[in-house]
């Protein structure tokens, strides 16, 4: 069985984001694998162990994204490929999905493609469903558990707005996972050594055999969020009751209830 995982490299979640002259920067904060994608890698590796699958990990990004791919190799993925092309600068999620779909097809017949819930830089949460749509495969989003997997069928539990549902789907399918799938494993020592030596091929759009996919979304401006002018008022008193009384009055005076 062949499984593919799509990961993105993003600035660390603790990074301080600075917007200057319409440009975003994050100082010397490290670039990491999108935290949600660690769950996707974990989900794929659980299946690798269970059904003896090959797990290829792919990322569309700059050369530096090879670091994130190496992390995935160190966790246990079998193969990694970077998709990088200057023509993808400024690509929107639609163009990204078409690129990922082409790469998935080039990798050969896969049964499952795992995605993270969303990327923590652009906060879109749409790429899994979009890639599925381009491939013409079902999208099983926000999966919390894979109940069973055989040659042509998968049964999963997924989160809905109202609770949970158990769903059976034909394969091949796209699966995006949430946190409930299980804590991502740490790279093993052996894994890290192997990953350090791994040569990661880079595919261009020409290698994928596609023209530059069209982007329809533009970002004419980025800004810092408006500074919130908050004066914090500390409430004190001689007893919890006195403090609570004062605080309750203050809250009511804000007229937000």
């Amino acid at each position: 069985m062949k499984i593919i995982v799509c990961i993105k490299q993003v600035p660390d979640s603790a990074a301080r984001i600075v917007v200057e002259g319409g440009q975003i920067s994050w100082g010397d904060a490290p670039a990491i694998m999108n935290p949600w994608d660690e769950y996707a890698v974990e989900a794929a590796l659980v299946q690798k162990d269970a059904v003896d699958a090959d797990v290829a990990v792919i990322s569309v990004g700059a050369e530096s994204a090879k670091e994130a791919l190496k992390t995935a190799l160190a966790m246990g993925c079998t193969e990694a490929i970077l998709i990088s092309d200057p023509a993808l600068a400024g690509a929107d999620s639609q163009a990204l999905a078409r690129t990922l779909a082409a790469a998935i097809q080039k990798l050969g017949p896969a049964e499952l493609v795992f995605f993270g819930r969303q990327a923590i830089d652009t906060d879109l949460g749409v790429t899994a469903a979009q890639t599925a749509r381009v491939l013409g495969w079902p999208a099983l989003t926000l999966v919390s558990k894979v109940d069973s997997l055989d040659g042509n069928k998968i049964t999963v539990e997924r989160s809905t707005e109202e609770g949970r549902q158990v769903l059976e789907s034909k394969l091949p399918a796209v699966v995006s996972v949430g946190k409930d799938i299980g804590e991502p494993r740490y790279p093993s020592f052996m894994g890290i050594r192997k990953a350090a030596k791994a040569v990661i091929p880079t595919w261009s759009l020409a290698d994928l055999g596609i023209e530059t996919p069209k982007s329809h979304i533009r970002w004419p401006a980025v800004m810092s969020p408006p500074v919130r002018d908050i004066t914090t008022e500390m409430i004190t008193g001689n007893s919890p009751q006195e403090i609570a009384g004062k605080l309750a009055d203050k809250i009511l005076a804000e007229k937000v209830l």
């Binding site: 979640s13 984001i17 975003i24 923590i120 906060d123 979304i217 533009r218 004419p220 800004m223 969020p225």
Partner: peptide
């Protein structure tokens, strides 16, 4: 207008199609 980087920045966005 939408938030990016978990609200640490804002972005204006336009759809051309």
């Amino acid at each position: 207008t939408r938030q990016i980087y978990a609200g640490k920045a804002l972005s204006k966005v336009v759809c051309d199609a």
